[in-house]
Computed example of a mutant assay.
Amino acid sequence: MSDWLADTRTSYDTVAASYAEHTRGLLDGLPHLRAALRLFAEEVSGPVADVGCGPGTTTALLAGLGVDAFGIDLSPAMVELARRDHPGLRFEVGSMTEPLPGPLGGVLSWWSLIHVPDELVPVVLSHFHRALRPDGLLQLGFHVGDRTNLKTRGYGGHPMKVHVHLRQPERVAEWLRAAGFTVEARWLLGEDGAVLFARRG
């Protein structure tokens, strides 16, 4: 396992419980993000992988909207929390840098691609593309910017070692088009977040 991947897994294992507490109910105050999730649920057909699912909150919200959703996360501790809190749903440990199970109707990846180095983003998007059925839907959420931050402490004050890559929507859109996706919509969330909707060609 690459150093950055091992560091990311260890970091999220360390903060898993604090992260789950911090993000509980977070979407209640984010109506535009909730709307993006509802639109995704309305448009998608078939099973959906929530990649980088963390403690399973968005996976459960998708399931509540009638989607056949399951979660994948790099952190075993996150997966353990997700299974505990959402026992009726499926969660598994995995990495987006490896092929995904398919065929899928959709892939949701909210603020998880942010830890992947630029040179591996095309690899990840190619895995998403291969896992999706023709016309399958992808939704990406990410931080907007032009820099990389090293996060050394987070949620609950616990130590972390993760790189957070902030990217411009057009750059992400270019990667998506190169991977064979059609970018259908871009939503800007305030000044520092974006959601892209893309469909497999």
Rank of each mutant, 00 (worst) to 15 (best):
residue 1 M to G: 13
residue 5 L to N: 00
residue 11 S to R: 05
residue 13 D to S: 05
residue 13 D to W: 09
residue 14 T to M: 12
residue 14 T to N: 14
residue 19 Y to V: 12
residue 22 H to C: 01
residue 24 R to Q: 13
residue 24 R to L: 14
residue 27 L to D: 15
residue 36 A to R: 09
residue 40 F to L: 02
residue 42 E to D: 14
residue 42 E to C: 07
residue 42 E to Q: 15
residue 42 E to K: 14
residue 52 G to Q: 00
residue 53 C to D: 12
residue 53 C to T: 15
residue 54 G to Y: 11
residue 55 P to T: 09
residue 57 T to H: 09
residue 62 L to Y: 01
residue 64 G to H: 06
residue 67 V to Y: 01
residue 68 D to C: 05
residue 70 F to R: 13
residue 73 D to G: 05
residue 75 S to W: 06
residue 78 M to K: 02
residue 80 E to F: 03
residue 80 E to C: 06
residue 84 R to V: 04
residue 86 H to K: 10
residue 93 V to F: 07
residue 94 G to A: 09
residue 95 S to N: 08
residue 97 T to A: 12
residue 97 T to D: 13
residue 98 E to D: 14
residue 102 G to V: 09
residue 104 L to Y: 12
residue 104 L to H: 11
residue 105 G to H: 12
residue 109 S to C: 15
residue 111 W to C: 01
residue 112 S to V: 11
residue 112 S to K: 02
residue 117 P to G: 01
residue 128 F to M: 08
residue 132 L to K: 13
residue 133 R to A: 15
residue 134 P to F: 02
residue 135 D to W: 00
residue 140 L to W: 03
residue 140 L to N: 01
residue 143 H to R: 14
residue 148 T to Y: 00
residue 153 R to P: 03
residue 154 G to D: 15
residue 154 G to W: 10
residue 158 H to I: 01
residue 162 V to E: 12
residue 173 A to T: 02
residue 174 E to S: 15
residue 185 A to I: 08
residue 186 R to I: 15
residue 186 R to C: 09
residue 195 V to E: 14
residue 197 F to N: 03
